[in-house]
Amino acid sequence: MNEYRCLFCRGPRDVPLRFRTLLAPVHPPGLCRLCLEKMAPIDRKACCLVCGRDLRQLKLEFIRHNICNDCMRWKKSGRGRLFGRNRSIFSYNKMMKEMMTAFKFRGDALLAEAFRKDFRDAYRQMIGIDPKGLWNRMRRGRWLFPNERYVVVPIPLTRERFIKRGFNQSAVLAELLGEPIIEALSRAGSQKKQSKKNRRERLLPGRNPFALNPRAASAIAGRRVLLIDDIYTTGATLRLACDTLEAAGPDRVDALTLAHG
């Protein structure tokens, strides 16, 4: 793997020279500075507590107590009751759109490697084993017991699309975490693509395309589940998946997505 070239634009990539990189035999592949500058990472201090949206891009009248208007409406609708929170790493801007096209539709699965570090960091932060979480726990005097680990469940594709695309992008992202993956869900039928629907169509409470894999039910019961998906748009997909998982009795369901938009 040529780590000196950008994964996306193939341009030269300046790996900053530090002691760690100087002595490392290989560097992890990644993006160049120019590509990184075009991305819009979401600050986790300024995001919606439920859906992880970047609140700085939202007008003030849509925010209440650090929760965006959409999430309020979800709460009132009563769907996805177990759904705790979603964390996204980037906002879905033009660059992210191009990335997603290359990653999902053109099939360049290697691009996921560019987000390995960010994805893992976000996960560590969610389960509280990042340095800051450790410090917080130490202050509270219970630094031995971090949060319980998640059961990682990628959002599946329908069978036809899986065959056609050749891989499941959510599973590829889930693999980055290095945790055991449980394929607890399956997706049925020939549905219109989520990405081809408009907001109204997405939010309509239609038939739930997800089904629970009965063999995985025991692994979920009483545990915290982390759903992995590529994009959080309206939250409909994740909440439908969450409703399906409810039958297996998880403790709560959170989500980690690459982009929010």
């Binding site: 780590e3 099939g107 899986f162 065959i163 050749g166």
Partner: peptide
């Protein structure tokens, strides 16, 4: 070699 990737394939 940098222009090849691996993926768990559906087929």
């Amino acid at each position: 070699p940098g222009e090849f990737g691996t993926v768990s394939c559906s087929q």
